[in-house]
Simulated scan of single mutants.
Amino acid sequence: MERNVNYVLIGGIFFAILIGLIVFILWFGRISFNEDKFRIYTITTSYDISGIAVKTPIKYKGITIGHIKHIGFDTTQLGVVKITLLIQRSIPIAKGSSVLIDSQGLAGLSYLALRQNPKGEIIVNDDDAVLTLDQSFLGKLSDKADSALEEMLGVLGSVEKLLSEKNVKHISSTLTSLDQFSQSLPALSSNINRALESINGELENGAGAMIAPTLYQTQKSLQNLDILLQKTSNLLDKFDDNPYPTIFGEKK
Score class of each variant (00 low, 15 high):
Ala207Gly: 04
Phe137Leu: 11
Ser103Thr: 12
Leu18Asp: 02
Pro57Leu: 02
Asn167Ala: 05
Ser190Lys: 06
Phe24Lys: 02
Glu202Gly: 07
Gly208Ala: 13
Ser97Ile: 09
Leu78Glu: 15
Phe15His: 04
Ile171Gln: 03
Trp27Lys: 05
Leu112Val: 04
Ile83Asp: 06
Asn191Tyr: 02
Arg115Thr: 12
Val159Cys: 11
Leu162Lys: 02
Tyr47Pro: 01
Asp143Cys: 00
Lys59Asn: 09
Asp237Gln: 14
Arg194Lys: 10
Asp146Met: 07
Asn191Thr: 10
Phe33Pro: 06
Pro57Tyr: 10
Tyr216Phe: 03
Glu165Gln: 15
Leu228Tyr: 07
Lys37Val: 03
Thr84Ile: 10
Ala53Pro: 08
Lys82Ile: 10
Asp143Tyr: 06
Leu203Asn: 10
Ile93Val: 15
Lys238Met: 08
Ile22Tyr: 15
Asn6Asp: 11
Ile71Gly: 05
Val124Arg: 11
Lys55His: 07
Ile58Met: 08
Gly62Lys: 12
Gly208Tyr: 13
His67Tyr: 13
Leu188Thr: 10
Gly51Asn: 09
Leu163Asn: 13
Gly249Leu: 14
Ile101Asp: 01
Phe248Gln: 00
Ser46Arg: 01
Glu35Lys: 09
Leu215Arg: 05
Ala53Gln: 15
Glu35Phe: 14
Leu222Thr: 01
Glu150His: 12
Val8Gly: 00
Ile83Val: 15
Ile22Arg: 04
Gly201Cys: 00
Glu204Gln: 10
Ser173Gln: 11
Ile63His: 09
Pro118Ser: 11
Pro213Leu: 02
Gly79Thr: 01
Lys95Thr: 10
Phe38Ser: 06
Thr218Glu: 06
Gly201Gln: 06
Tyr47Ser: 13
Leu138Tyr: 11
Met1Lys: 07
Leu133Phe: 06
Gly72Arg: 03
Ile49Glu: 01
His67Ile: 02
Lys161Asn: 09
Ile19Phe: 12
Leu235Ala: 13
Glu202Cys: 00
Gln116Ile: 10
Thr218Phe: 12
Phe248Ile: 11
Ile123Tyr: 01
Thr75Cys: 01
Ile19Leu: 05
Leu162His: 04
Thr64Cys: 06
Asp134Gln: 14
Lys69Asn: 09
Ile101Pro: 14
Leu114Val: 05
Leu18Val: 15
Glu250Gly: 02
Thr176Tyr: 09
Gly11Gln: 04
Ser198Gln: 03
Gly11Arg: 02
Gly120Leu: 04
Ala195Val: 09
Arg3Glu: 12
Gly157Phe: 12
Ser190Phe: 01
Leu228Gln: 12
Thr42Phe: 07
His67Ala: 06
Ile122His: 06
Pro186Asn: 12
Leu175Ala: 13
Ala209Phe: 15
Leu178Pro: 00
Ala207Gln: 11
Leu228Gly: 09
Gly201Ser: 15
Tyr7Ile: 01
Ile93Met: 13
Ser90Gly: 08
